[in-house]
Amino acid sequence: HSHMSHTQVIELERKFSHQKYLSAPERAHLAKNLKLTETQVKIWFQNRRYKTKRKQLSSEL
């Protein structure tokens, strides 16, 4: 499990705020920019979407 830097997370968050789903080319581009693997980016987005979904569910209770 590799640790992401604060800067990388900020960039991922910024991208996520604009779009929740990335196409393969977008993911490849973002990964390259942030010096991450595409898998890391993919998993981060999956986890981030899951967290957002959970938060929405709990706020509706």
Rank of each mutant, 00 (worst) to 15 (best):
residue 9 V to K: 08
residue 48 R to M: 10
residue 28 A to V: 07
residue 40 Q to P: 00
residue 45 F to W: 10
residue 31 A to N: 01
residue 14 R to A: 08
residue 39 T to W: 14
residue 29 H to F: 08
residue 42 K to H: 08
residue 24 A to L: 10
residue 14 R to Y: 05
residue 9 V to T: 09
residue 58 S to Y: 07
residue 30 L to E: 01
residue 6 H to K: 13
residue 37 T to S: 10
residue 47 N to F: 13
residue 8 Q to Y: 03
residue 31 A to M: 02
residue 38 E to V: 11
residue 4 M to Y: 08
residue 57 L to D: 13
residue 17 S to N: 09
residue 19 Q to C: 15
residue 31 A to R: 01
residue 41 V to F: 05
residue 58 S to K: 11
residue 57 L to Q: 13
residue 31 A to L: 02
residue 52 T to Q: 14
residue 55 K to V: 10
residue 56 Q to C: 15
residue 5 S to D: 06
residue 54 R to F: 08
residue 9 V to H: 11
residue 9 V to Q: 08
residue 35 K to L: 12
residue 33 N to M: 15
residue 53 K to Q: 08
residue 30 L to P: 01
residue 22 L to H: 01
residue 19 Q to E: 03
residue 17 S to A: 11
residue 46 Q to K: 15
residue 4 M to I: 10
residue 9 V to M: 15
residue 27 R to L: 14
residue 27 R to G: 03
residue 22 L to T: 01
residue 13 E to Q: 08
residue 54 R to Y: 09
residue 28 A to K: 10
residue 21 Y to T: 04
residue 15 K to Y: 15
residue 43 I to N: 08
residue 3 H to L: 10
residue 8 Q to N: 02
residue 49 R to F: 04
residue 25 P to E: 14
residue 13 E to M: 09
residue 3 H to T: 07
residue 37 T to G: 02
residue 10 I to E: 12
residue 42 K to T: 06
residue 1 H to R: 09
residue 30 L to R: 00
residue 19 Q to R: 10
residue 13 E to T: 04
residue 39 T to N: 11
residue 30 L to C: 06
residue 15 K to N: 06
residue 59 S to L: 09
residue 6 H to D: 09
residue 54 R to S: 12
residue 39 T to Y: 11
residue 15 K to V: 15
residue 6 H to I: 13
residue 25 P to C: 15
residue 56 Q to D: 10
residue 35 K to P: 01
residue 11 E to M: 09
residue 23 S to F: 03
residue 5 S to A: 03
residue 57 L to Y: 06
residue 31 A to H: 01
residue 2 S to R: 12
residue 30 L to H: 01
residue 55 K to H: 07
residue 22 L to Y: 00
residue 11 E to N: 03
residue 47 N to G: 05
residue 29 H to G: 06
residue 30 L to G: 00
residue 13 E to Y: 05
residue 14 R to Q: 05
residue 42 K to Q: 09
residue 40 Q to N: 02
residue 41 V to P: 00
residue 19 Q to K: 12
residue 52 T to A: 15
residue 3 H to M: 10
residue 7 T to F: 15
residue 2 S to E: 08
residue 44 W to N: 00
